[in-house]
Design a protein around this nucleic acid. Structure first.
Lengths: 226, 226
DNA sequence: TATCAATATGACTGATACGTCATGTTATTG
DNA sequence: CAATAACATGACGTATCAGTCATATTGATA
């Protein structure tokens, strides 16, 4: 579950305990289950607070308040406010990708894959409305993290498109351009029919079926063509 | 690093000059050409600073410094930092819309309109790279302004699509869904081939022709279909 | 149950920024 | 050339935080 990443995690060196008995500052990795649980609570609180108030208006003290820990505890597990934000982006990306890829498993027809993928994406967003704005904001707060987020999604997309192209399910298309085009479609439709409505009225929203069908129609023609 | 929150809103009414001879605070509209020029300089400086540093890391003092005026002068023309940001969003929207609509004047074929519209959009962005990030950030800083920005673009788009549909140039499509889908395509292609490259290397970039053609191909099939 | 590393606390510091205000300058008008 | 309204100044008042640190608590182990 946790997915503590090996290579691309921060912490350059020396994760072990210190020689003098004092804990090496810069470890940040909890050793006990208690620590792990606290760290997780802080992360979840951060997702909530960043989602509601945005990165800059969110304060570390608000995050720790909601997590039920003291300010100082935060810095036991994260070097900085920005660092936890980046970790959050990575988490959200992983969760989103696994949600969509789970939805298209066992499917081979590319157009059905698109339909199920889009449906899963919208579904995920409507249940986690915060993540949209968090990722959006990442473009300013942590551009590298935002790029990585979109790039990883596009890579999966490109693989799928290439395969479909080989099998002749779809037209000859430029995989990367098409991948970004499709991501843009999903993004803006979500903005218009999920994010905005949620901001105005508090209820949970989903894409109207007629809109969903219209979008899938547009995409299908775009991919297949004559 | 810190950000004070602007207690914005306020400013009930009374734009005219004061009875006691002192200028009524809340007018904000320059009366002389000198004032107009100063206000404009501040606006241009704000576009630059917001674009480079982002809304929250930009400071009013940095804006006034680059405009060559004192801090207090800022509040002669704008109630708050947020207010100038909103005005900027409106400005950028107007400029962008007029740039694209100028590019498609005298054109009737919808597919050619799309091609020219997209080209104008990309061209505008590559010459004003800042605006992309400013508008993006507006989603957090001034959601109403951001919504208005996108809505006005989509309205023009929908009109065009409806007309094209009536003339049979394109398939029967849902105008609003299609408008947002197309906006999404443009947005993400710009992100990938204009904004990101500009962030990494400082030079000016434009969309590679093969990518542009691939995108137009996708769109054309999506609009026309069989 | 004594030990001690891991975990937790919260007061404090240093830095920064928005917006105000009392005062000064410009230039237009009668 | 006064008078005066518009424009301009910049120091200051008031807040807010990110991050640090000395101290306290917890709980596993021997």
């Amino acid at each position: 579950m946790r997915e503590r990443d090996d290579a691309d995690g921060a912490s350059p060196v020396a994760p072990v305990s210190a020689p003098n008995g004092k804990r090496e500052p810069g470890s940040l990795i909890p050793v006990t289950a208690r620590g792990e649980a606290t760290r997780q609570r802080i992360l979840e609180s951060a997702e909530q607070v960043f989602g509601e108030m945005g990165y800059y208006e969110a304060s570390v003290s608000e995050i720790t308040r909601r997590a039920g820990v003291a300010q100082g505890t935060f810095y036991l597990y994260f070097h900085s406010k920005r660092e936890i934000f980046v970790e959050l982006i990575d988490d959200l990306g992983t969760r989103l990708r696994s949600a969509t890829s789970a939805a298209i498993a066992d499917t081979t027809d590319r157009l059905i894959i698109e339909r199920q993928g889009f449906a899963a994406f919208f579904d995920f967003l409507s249940h986690h409305p915060r993540i949209y704005k968090i990722v959006q904001e990442a473009d300013r707060v942590a551009p590298e993290a935002a790029r990585a987020y979109y790039q990883r999604i596009s890579e999966g997309y490109q693989r799928g498109l290439r395969r479909a192209r080989e099998f002749g399910t779809i037209r000859e298309v430029d995989p990367e351009a098409t991948a970004y085009a499709l991501m843009g479609v999903a993004h803006f439709v979500a903005l218009r029919w999920l994010v905005w409505p949620q901001e105005l009225g508090a209820e949970e929203h989903s894409i109207p079926p007629t809109v969903f069908d219209a979008v899938m129609d547009f995409i299908s023609h775009g991919l297949v063509g004559r």
